[in-house]
Simulated scan of single mutants.
Amino acid sequence: MPVELSATQALTLWHTVSLDQVRVESGDLTLRQMAILLHIYLVPPPHTVRGLAATLGVTKPVITRALDTMGERGLVERVRDDRDRRNVVIKRTVTGALYLEKLGDLIIDRGRRLSL
């Protein structure tokens, strides 16, 4: 059954979850980094720097900077494509999967509290 939220309720949910993330996470992700991370985990692979740049409509250096931060946190991993050494393939990690699972659980929890 679809959840019906007003625009205000949806924004309140986003606000609450964002505040929780900022409070709990020592190095919270930017909106761009979160969009990239969600794309990597929700859209079937393979993912490349070039492909992510095209999808988000930004340059490859923008993607590279975002991936640097996420890589330092262990959320993603970059490896050279064996078939085309010019391409860098972005891989999912267990740490990244757990991060998003916790985020999903937090959204569910806050969404339930919002509807009460």
Rank of each mutant, 00 (worst) to 15 (best):
M34L: 14
T12P: 03
L56F: 12
R113M: 05
T30E: 02
L11S: 10
T30L: 03
L116A: 09
L11G: 09
V24P: 03
M70P: 05
I63G: 01
G27L: 15
A66C: 08
N87F: 10
R113Y: 07
R32G: 04
P44H: 03
R78W: 00
D20T: 08
R83G: 14
R83S: 12
A54M: 07
I63E: 00
L38M: 13
D105M: 13
D28R: 14
T69A: 06
W14A: 15
N87C: 14
R73H: 14
G111P: 01
T48F: 04
L103M: 07
T59L: 09
T55I: 05
M70T: 09
D81T: 01
L11M: 11
P44Y: 01
R110F: 02
L11I: 12
V79G: 08
A35K: 09
G51S: 00
V24W: 13
I40M: 08
G74W: 10
A66T: 05
T95K: 10
V62I: 10
L11K: 08
V79A: 09
T16V: 14
L98E: 11
M70F: 01
L31Q: 09
T30K: 07
T12M: 13
R113N: 08
V17G: 07
R32T: 04
D20G: 08
I63N: 00
A66I: 03
D81I: 01
R32D: 03
T48N: 06
L5Y: 06
V43F: 01
R85C: 11
G57E: 14
G74V: 09
S115I: 02
R50V: 07
R65I: 10
R73W: 11
D68L: 09
G96P: 11
H15V: 13
M1L: 14
T59F: 09
T59P: 08
L116V: 14
T48Q: 02
P61V: 02
P44A: 03
V76M: 08
V22R: 13
A53F: 02
L13E: 05
V62A: 13
G104P: 08
W14H: 15
R112M: 14
D68F: 11
D28A: 11
R85S: 15
H15P: 08
I40T: 06
A54N: 05
R23E: 13
R86F: 04
T64A: 13
R80F: 06
T69R: 11
E4H: 08
L52E: 04
Y99L: 01
P61Q: 09
M1T: 07
G27R: 12
G96E: 06
T93H: 01
I90K: 02
T48D: 05
V58T: 15
V24C: 14
T12W: 04
R112N: 15
A10M: 12
